[in-house]
């Protein structure tokens, strides 16, 4: 009789899954880059003195915070082509990866705008004043003094946001993206749905290791960029 649970399926599945991390990374990477860009714009709107801009940016963030990823994913997947059709653009033949990137860019931008805003606000106003008082222009003050400090403050939150994005991205299989989750489901289907548990455990291991690696990497970055924060080591 066949066993209910056979651990060898776990180890056999991992090498089959790993090549599809490429898709996972590509989609997550694109969303991160675009999300940071739009997140910066949103954060600028939130920090601007124009009430309308602030309100709009905050509303956007609230909406994103209140929408489950899977709902946003399907809304984009079905909604964007429908909207595009109205203005005469046919998006029906486009790759699913496009919709995944759109979805997670929308979501990541909202998260990043909060990360950027809070780290900016955490920096003492005096740092900017001191920078312009020694003759730096506004731009130079931001680039050389404010930004490097804000970056250090933002790093842990940025790392967490990246891990969260990677995990939410696991839902992309629902609209047919063949990333590692999509591949796992294909493997299960080819086993006629037997040993699904083992494949899912393999999947969990891949994600778990990935998250730990990202976490450690960010802890390292923080240590590297966190100069000026060391209080006890030197002197």
């Amino acid at each position: 009789m066949e066993k209910y649970f056979d651990a060898s399926y776990i180890w056999n599945a991992i090498p089959l899954l790993l090549p599809f991390l490429k898709v996972t990374f590509l989609v997550a990477g694109s969303s991160i880059v675009l999300g940071i860009f739009f997140g910066l714009l949103l954060a600028a709107a939130k920090l601007s003195s124009m009430k309308v801009l602030q309100k709009m940016a905050n509303l956007y963030t609230t909406i994103m915070r209140c929408t489950p990823s899977i709902v946003l994913l399907f809304l984009v997947y079905y909604g964007v082509p429908a909207l595009a059709e109205n203005i005469g653009i046919n998006l029906h033949a486009i790759e699913t990866a496009f919709f995944v990137v759109v979805t997670f860019t929308l979501q990541f931008a909202a998260i990043m705008s909060e990360v950027i805003r809070s780290s900016y606000l955490a920096i003492n106003k005096g740092q900017f004043e001191a920078a312009v008082s020694v003759g730096l222009t506004r731009f130079q003050a931001y680039r050389r003094i404010i930004f490097p400090q804000a970056l250090v403050i933002a790093l842990p939150n940025f790392g967490n946001a990246m891990i969260a994005l990677l995990q939410e991205g696991a839902l992309a299989y629902t609209i047919g993206l063949i990333d590692i989750v999509g591949k796992a489901n294909l493997i299960i289907a080819s086993n006629i749905n037997a040993h699904a548990l083992e494949i899912y455990i393999a999947l969990a291991i891949v994600y778990w290791v990935l998250s730990i690696v990202i976490e450690k990497f960010f802890a390292m970055l923080e240590k590297f960029f966190g100069k000026g924060k060391i209080t006890l080591e030197t002197t």
Partner: peptide, 9 residues
Amino acid sequence: FVRGTPIII
């Protein structure tokens, strides 16, 4: 584990 894996998994 919980923080490191997607909830769907």
